[in-house]
Design a protein around this nucleic acid. Sequence first.
RNA 1: GCCGAGAUGGCGGAAUUGGUAGACGCGCGGGUCUCAAAAACCCGUUGGAGCGAUCCAGUGAGGGUUCGAUUCCCUCUCUCGGCACCA
Length: 826
Amino acid sequence: MRKGPYDHQAIEQKWQERWDHDHLYEVDLDHPKKKFYNLIMFPYPSAAALHVGHVYCYGGADTYARYKRMQGYDVFEPMGFDAFGIHAENYAITIKEHPQVVVPRNVEHFREDQMKKLGAMFDWSREVNTTDPDYYKWTQWVFLQMHRAGLVERKVAAVDWCPGCKTVLANEQVIDGECERCHSQVEQKELAQWFFKITKYADRLLAGLDKIDWPERTKALQKHWIGKKVGIDITYKIDGQPDKSVVCFTTRPETNFGATFVVLAPEHPFVDSLTTPEQRAAVGAYRELVKKKSDMDRTELSKEKTGVFTGSYCINDLNSARMPVWVGDFVLAHFGSGAVVGVPAHDIRDFEFAQMAGIPVIRVLEKDGDRSEITKGEQVWEDAGTVMNSGFLDGMPWEQAREAIMDHIEKNGWGTRTVSFRLHDWCISRQRYWGPPIPMIHCEKCGWVPVPEKDLPVLLPKIVEYLPDGSGRGPLARVESFVKTECPVCHGPAERETDVSDTFLDSAWYQLRYPSTEFGEKPFDDERSRKWLPVDMYIGGIEHATMHLIYFRFVTMVLHDLGYFDFDEPSLKLRHQGLIIKDGAKMSKSRGNVVNPDEYIRKFGADAFRTYMLFIGPYEDGGDFNDRGILGASRFFEKVWDVLLTPSLSAKLASEGGLPPLAGGPETKVSLAKLHATVKKVGDDLENLHFNTAIASLMELGNWLKESSGYLSPDQWKEVCSTVPRLLAPFAPHLAEELWEKLGFAYSVHNQLFPIYDESELVESSFVLTVQVNGKVRDTFTLPLDITQSDVEKATLEREKVQKWLEGKTVKKVIYVPRKLINIVI
RNA sequence: GCCGAGAUGGCGGAAUUGGUAGACGCGCGGGUCUCAAAAACCCGUUGGAGCGAUCCAGUGAGGGUUCGAUUCCCUCUCUCGGCACCA
């Protein structure tokens, strides 16, 4: 057998073609014995090429999937393209081409020139592309299901408007007051939009977190994002106008005897009716000012409290206190009831507002016996205490008082216990071109009517002028042939909705489509979904924690509730790859430090590149990309190649008698404990995505093999030759396949089971004892395994190095950890 | 401000239930080969002292528990991520 040089280019091309030809990675979806659905977040073609972050994500996910396959699972690892959306469209605009041209070209490049070169187990026969009418037909169908479930609402609301992208954004797409895509300052705009009532699922989204194996920090992000607050809505009647009242949501009703004012959000619907004629001008001016504020640079906005008195007062039924009603922009219209009752003694914001407005401060909680007047912001503490100055609540600990007063308020009909969420409804309208048209039709007579399912898809027309014009309506509004249609109900003339849906809707259900791509007449086949869903492992970036990963769960829950399947969480297990940075900074086009993997893959091979990336650090932490390190992986593979394929050793494999031990070699047989320990370590690490330590132990095995291979018996050598390629297979699929073939085993290594280790082989015949004196290491020496404790102590005390330390001292105590350590305390 | 994660050689990072800190790799130093260089291979590589055996110090800082602490507890500093006037 000729070894030949390790020519990664030839090897990788050879096996990629072979695997493709043999459909090696296409599983039988109808007859899985042990299914494993390994889902990887699909890319969006918003740049000319994939970068190393993608390779990192896919490399790790694929290595894990390959391990699962070698455990006997039928692993389904599909891939696709999230090709609709603002990100892809903005890219097309930047390079001054049409998305209809750019997107297919990028997808082709991603798939053919980049992803297929990675040597991943992607099943390309089930590729999904969200811009394909056969796909977005069903995205529109999902919209109709939402409508059917009563979760679609059209409302005119102040929404986040990006002047750069000339469209509305979801709350999740606004980062620090900027558009997450183009970083323009987001403005407030009053527009009629389509919303999904995700807030109705807030409790479900929270509760579901307890039953899925997702990272705790991801769950914490979602919990915080959903922001459940339990409290009470208290109604305060307006003084002198018994028919009018204001509802304030509070989580701290036990402090309500200390309430001295009420503040409405500037957008609160009652502002006009509560403003007295004398205050009208001031309130009007203030509201104008607030409107402009959102257009101003956010960083210049001071957190100083501002506000204007409406002239009205309301009554606190608890103590008949007369409280001025103000308008202030620190109160948010979309949280709670859009109005706040101010207790300045026990809330820092209320305190600041009271100081600004000259409103009195009444202390109602004592802390550690302190009942003094509150005169400074630092004294406003919001944690536990005992109630004072509050009538029947006096002397109660705050927890008890909270329940008592809520009972009291409810009994008297002054309020109702309630729950508020930070989560907003999901605004899915986009005034853009590159997305699935929202399947709604407006008829003068019938109002808004959904497009009948049989008429799907509502095709996105191919138009040349696709740029948004900022009119508040999308580019489709300019296409008369698209807009003009017939009402599905009365068949009179009607107009189509011209907005397209948010990209996050495209990706909120894609996991359902992959196993059913060949079914043109339905979004997913019941039998296939039953066999393959939910997803067993989902891998992707944590940046989607409060966006895609919430919508993904929400849409699954709704379809479940409509009876389409019996699971209500899309993915049982989720893990995130860490962020790959370059020179300590996040990779970005603007920094110019984006690393394209193609060059490295050509030079070092996909095997070495994948392995290097996974070796950088813990997979879930990511790390700094440093191209010098690739050499390490490359040298490792060269070494393995040489050791396993050295002709003399191969000859040894063939000759039954084997070669005599090399000169100077030990008489006794070399133990394969290292091999078995590596099998155990690599398997355990792969299961936990600890790729870096798995690779380190493989490298150790390589070093050991290089030193010891000359001492192995033919049987041991056979075991090594059949084990090592299988250990390498998840990390370096091409190299492993080539070694497997060259060593004379039958195709394919990727149909083999992962090696099994023998517990008894792990045990060496001797162990190294660490000797400590007063906890400091002073000596180490080797002892036989079956030695008794008293013999260990005796042997230890005889050691010269130990005696030196014990000289003239009394041994107080001896601690022995079997087969590990002995500590002599003097 | 609140929530979450973290801090270990020149660098990336290892270290089962507390039990030899620095595995593995990069880089660096020395050597072999070469007319020479690169590559490859071999040896060394936490800091300090010593020719050396060896000794001392050492896992962000300070304290504590323990025979023994990177690991557990308390206090503090800094870094990163998320949220941010959310009542």
